[in-house]
Simulated scan of single mutants.
Amino acid sequence: MLTGRRPFGRGGLSVGPVGYGVAALGNLYQALPDDVWPRCVPAAWDAGVRYFDVAPHYGLGLAEERLGQALAGRPRDELIVSSKVGRLLVPNEDYAGERDPGMFDVPATLRRVRDYSRDGVLRSLENTLRRTGLDRIDVLFVHDPDDHEREALDGAFPALEELRSQDVIRSYGAGMNQSAMLARFVRETDLDIVMVAGRYTLLDQSALDDLLPLAAERGVSVAAAGVFNSGLLATPRPGPVARYDYAQASAALVERAHRIADIAERHGATLPVLAAQFPLAHPAVATVVLGADSPEQIVSNAALVSEPLDPLVWAELADAGLLRADAPTADSVTERMG
């Protein structure tokens, strides 16, 4: 059972074990009905979630607008909001009624322009504050700079350092679907939080090779996102057409997930419980960020980390070659969290 709060960055923030990634509020893959999306953030709040992650990219700003509406009136000092920089939203002058091509079911009245410059960071933050209606954003991540590493190092990170030194934001970092570049950013900048998606999960522990040891050494907090690997680990028994990293999962990955599920069931657990709790055993990981597109799913996700687990499940997974032997497991995390 994982409860309590952990330090989140070096700016005095702390988080619970679960954060809510609100991409679905931007109509990810499909539009959320008007009687559903307004209930999502209240459901997370009632379940004890106080960390909310968003980005301009999500629904061309729609997720930021909806998150701001949902948080209006909540005690600001009790919650943490992170957003991202690197994709500016500008008017789509050629708009002719088409939908957004970027996985979000929204009108393409705006378009994304990559901009990792100092000016781009400042403009992005200004626009995020306007869309959310919040008085501040606590954490800013450089978003997916895979093909823009030099621009991020020369422009975005110095700008974020300036914003943190002026107490405009509390912490900054980067959010990516890879660990190698995040590790370089940990070495080369003074960031204090990173969000790594999909690279520290039951099916992919590659962040152990670079990012996680370095983050622990440098006192950098890690938010683990994509812990269900796009859905393959989100149900007790994945179907044959489950998704993995935004694409259809291979038969080999589906079979591996079923082998993990077999062991989980022998210990009275489920695949989603293991997937949510596994990353939290690493000393650098402060929280797992879980997406959801319904109030019911949010409540279910928030409860995953509260499920008691037989610590022998991790040893059996390692013995079966389904978990790296050097991966920290939950028999030590309870001692850290108290």
Rank of each mutant, 00 (worst) to 15 (best):
L253Y: 12
V36C: 02
D135C: 11
R118A: 11
L89V: 10
V139H: 07
G268H: 03
D192I: 07
A286T: 06
G73C: 06
Q178E: 15
L125N: 07
L212W: 03
R243E: 15
L322G: 08
R150M: 15
G21Q: 09
L140A: 04
A207V: 00
E161K: 11
E296H: 07
N27V: 07
S82Y: 07
S332F: 14
A261M: 00
H282R: 01
G226M: 06
V254H: 01
R5V: 14
A249D: 05
A24W: 11
R112C: 13
P213Y: 04
F278D: 00
L191A: 03
L60V: 07
A302T: 01
D262P: 06
L202W: 03
V241R: 15
L62H: 05
G226P: 07
L88Y: 11
R184M: 12
D119Q: 13
P158I: 05
L274E: 00
A303H: 10
L304S: 02
P283Q: 01
A223V: 09
Q166I: 12
E307P: 10
A242W: 10
N177V: 08
L211Q: 03
A63C: 09
L271F: 03
V168E: 11
Q30S: 15
M176R: 05
I263E: 02
G321I: 07
Y51L: 12
L125F: 09
D210I: 12
R87L: 13
P283D: 00
Y116I: 05
M1R: 14
A47L: 04
A31E: 13
A23E: 05
L67Q: 04
P213S: 02
A23H: 06
V254R: 00
R50W: 02
G73P: 00
S124G: 07
Y58E: 03
Q166V: 12
D34Y: 09
V196R: 06
G26F: 02
D245M: 04
M1L: 14
T189K: 00
E78I: 12
D326L: 08
L89W: 07
A224N: 02
W37M: 01
V254K: 01
P56E: 09
H57F: 15
T287Y: 04
G19W: 00
R199S: 04
W314G: 07
V15H: 11
N127Y: 14
V222Y: 02
L304E: 01
L129K: 08
L280R: 08
E149V: 15
T189E: 01
S294P: 09
A264L: 05
A159R: 11
R164M: 11
R324F: 02
A284C: 05
A183G: 07
V139N: 05
A72Q: 15
G26V: 08
L28A: 03
G120H: 06
G11Q: 10
V41M: 00
